[in-house]
Each structure stands twice: as structure tokens, then as C-alpha cells.
């Protein structure tokens, strides 16, 4: 360590105005609030206990998996295999429960399969330096295939009723999956903000070479993130199987894009380094509210696709405009 004495030279760059900083931080939360109030006032039955519960349940899956996708995106990668992992883990859990009669073994098999896929993704991306898009595009298809092979292409009904409590029970009047999602938001938000791992993740996404030269174990971080992503997707798949009372090999096609959309909508950068749990929650809820309101208004499904795409495009354009203004 050393002390230094230097002479002042030039002035500091100007501080951005308080309003623009607030806008930057809370932009999407503001949109969320306006959207929510708008729907509550303008859409019949929107702001009712039953609908709120339904809405939360509908976004719970996206919410859970968005937590780990946030880490993936923050580190500058992304993962397309999660939709397949959800389906495959559900099917595998169902098959193992039926064969062994043990719920524990079934759940472990499901989670284990997710961990395996995630670790493989992480190893190939971090160590073998293959682009994450290609890597996870490949595993997406491989894992989807495995799901079909294990189930023979058909839904696998589960024989043990005790398993259904995971997805269908309630605590204090609120369904368990919602509690799980809220817990995920809290835990992963804490990890991102308050742990060295979380901060290092953002540094890796912001500039992986600089992070490496600052002594951060870049490869290890990426492998851990992909593995966690696989486990989380598998867990979501198990909860879903519990809700459906069966493992469905066809389920959640396109889920990966829904999750990435929600994150990006909230303001998580696709190029890495920028993201927070608040962004993700905002993104997930905006997606969910729009979907829910369209259902309540009886907008035909075909139009809903168009609307969702337009909203995503508008959100990223808004983000770009906001950044250019700074």
C-alpha cells in the first residue's frame, strides 16, 4: 500500500440529474405500476382475489426460472435448454416414482437430470468456449428427445397422491408454487446483490477478460450458473408435474423464450453485466398482467401472440431510447 499526493487537474464529469437516475432505476417498475392500475380500473374482474391468485400462479413457473436466467444473462450468456429440461425432469420424476414408489428418489432423479444438463452446458460454454446459443440449442433438442424416449412420447400419470401436494397445496390461502417463487426472488436477489458470487457474475458479464485479470474464476462461475439454471428448471418441471399429476413430455415448448423475454423486458442486458432482481420481477409481472388482461378481455389467442411480441419490441426500444438520452 502507498500514500500518494497529487495535484488536481480537471473537473469531474457532471452528475446526472436525480430524475433521470430515478427513471433509469425504476423505469420498468413505473410501467408495471401504471399497467397494474390501468388494468385494475379498466378490466372487469382483474383486481379480484381469485384473479390475483390465478395471475400469480400463472407466472410462478416463469418467475422461478427467471431467477437463474437472470444470472445467466448477467454473466453474458443465455440458456435455451430450460424448456426441455422442465419437460424431461417432470417425465423422469414421474417414471421414477412409478417404478420405485419413492417420491424422494423421483424428485432426486429429476433434479439430478437438470444438474447434469446444466453442468454439461456450463462446461461446454466455459471450458470449451463454444457459443452459448449453439450449445444450449443442441442440449435443448437432446433433452427434449430424452423426455420423449423416457415417456415413450405419452403423458406419464403419477401413482403417488402425496406427490401432488407440492403443486396443489396452499399456505395461508396462497398456493405453494407462489410461495416458492417469492422465496426464489428473495434468495436469488440476495445472492446477486449481497454476495461476492453475485457481484462477480455481473463483472464477468460486463467484461470477462477484465474479470479474469482481476482474479475472478470466470469459468467456475459460468459452470455454477448453468448448473443452477438446470436444477432450477428441473425443479420447476417437478412442481409442474405435481400440478398436472403427470409428467408431460410435450410441455413448455418455447418456455425459454418466454423467460428470456421477461428478463429483457424488465431491463436485463442481453450482452451481460446489467441486471437486478427488481428488473426481473417487473418483467415477469408485466408479461403476466398483459396475458391475464387479454384473457379477461377475451382477446383471441392469435392476437395475443402479436400483442406480446409488440410489447417486447416496444420495451427494448424504450430501453435503447432511455440509454441514448443519458
Amino acid at each position: 500500500m502507498a500514500t500518494t499526493d497529487t495535484s488536481p487537474v480537471s473537473a469531474a464529469p457532471p452528475r446526472p440529474s436525480a430524475a433521470s437516475r430515478f427513471f433509469d432505476k425504476a423505469g420498468m417498475l413505473l410501467v408495471l405500476a401504471i399497467l397494474f392500475i390501468g388494468c385494475a380500473v379498466g378490466v372487469d374482474n382483474f383486481f379480484s382475489w381469485v384473479n390475483m391468485k390465478g395471475l400469480a400462479l400463472a407466472v410462478s413457473m416463469t418467475g422461478m426460472v427467471s431467477c437463474t436466467m437472470l444470472f445467466c444473462l448477467a454473466a453474458g450468456d443465455f440458456d435455451l435448454s430450460i424448456g426441455s429440461v422442465v419437460a424431461c425432469a417432470g417425465v423422469l420424476t414421474a417414471v421414477v416414482i412409478n417404478h420405485t414408489g419413492s417420491i424422494t428418489l423421483g424428485v432426486l432423479a429429476g433434479l439430478g437430470s437438470g444438474a447434469l444438463v446444466g453442468a454439461l452446458n456450463g462446461y461446454v460454454v466455459a471450458r470449451l468456449r463454444i457459443n452459448a446459443l449453439i450449445t444450449t440449442l443442441a442440449t435443448m433438442q437432446i433433452v427434449r428427445g430424452f423426455g420423449f424416449i423416457v415417456s415413450d412420447g405419452k403423458a406419464v400419470g403419477i401413482g403417488r397422491e402425496a406427490f401432488f401436494t407440492l403443486g396443489n397445496s396452499s399456505l395461508l390461502g396462497i398456493p405453494t408454487p407462489i410461495w416458492i417463487t417469492v422465496a426464489c426472488f428473495a434468495v436469488f436477489g440476495f445472492i446477486l446483490n449481497r454476495t461476492v458470487f453475485g457481484r462477480d457474475t455481473l463483472a464477468v458479464g460486463g467484461n470477462s477478460e477484465a474479470a479474469h485479470l482481476a482474479g475472478i474464476a470466470v469459468d467456475r462461475i459460468k459452470i455454477v450458473i448453468f448448473t443452477a439454471q438446470g436444477v432450477m428448471a428441473a425443479f420447476a418441471g417437478i412442481v409442474l408435474a405435481s400440478r398436472f399429476t403427470s409428467g408431460q413430455p410435450n410441455t413448455n415448448q418455447g418456455f425459454e423464450l418466454e423467460v428470456i423475454s421477461a428478463c429483457v423486458l424488465g431491463g436485463v442486458s442481453l450482452t451481460g453485466g446489467i441486471g437486478s432482481m427488481a428488473f426481473v420481477i417487473a418483467g415477469v409481472l408485466i408479461m403476466g398482467i398483459v396475458q391475464n388482461a387479454m384473457n379477461l378481455l377475451n382477446v383471441p389467442t392469435f392476437y395475443q401472440y402479436v400483442a406480446r411480441g409488440v410489447i417486447l419490441l416496444a420495451a427494448v426500444l424504450f430501453d435503447r431510447w432511455k440509454r441514448r438520452k443519458q
Binding site: A203, G206, A211
Partner: peptide, 16 residues
């Protein structure tokens, strides 16, 4: 390219 993490703050870059 190798020194700073441009999208993070002065604080984070210092404590990296």
C-alpha cells in the same frame, strides 16, 4: 478491453 468493467460503478471496479 482488459481493465475496466464499463457497465459497473467506480465502487465495484475498485473492489473487484
Amino acid at each position: 478491453k482488459e481493465g475496466i468493467v464499463p457497465v459497473r460503478s467506480v465502487l465495484e471496479n475498485t473492489n473487484l
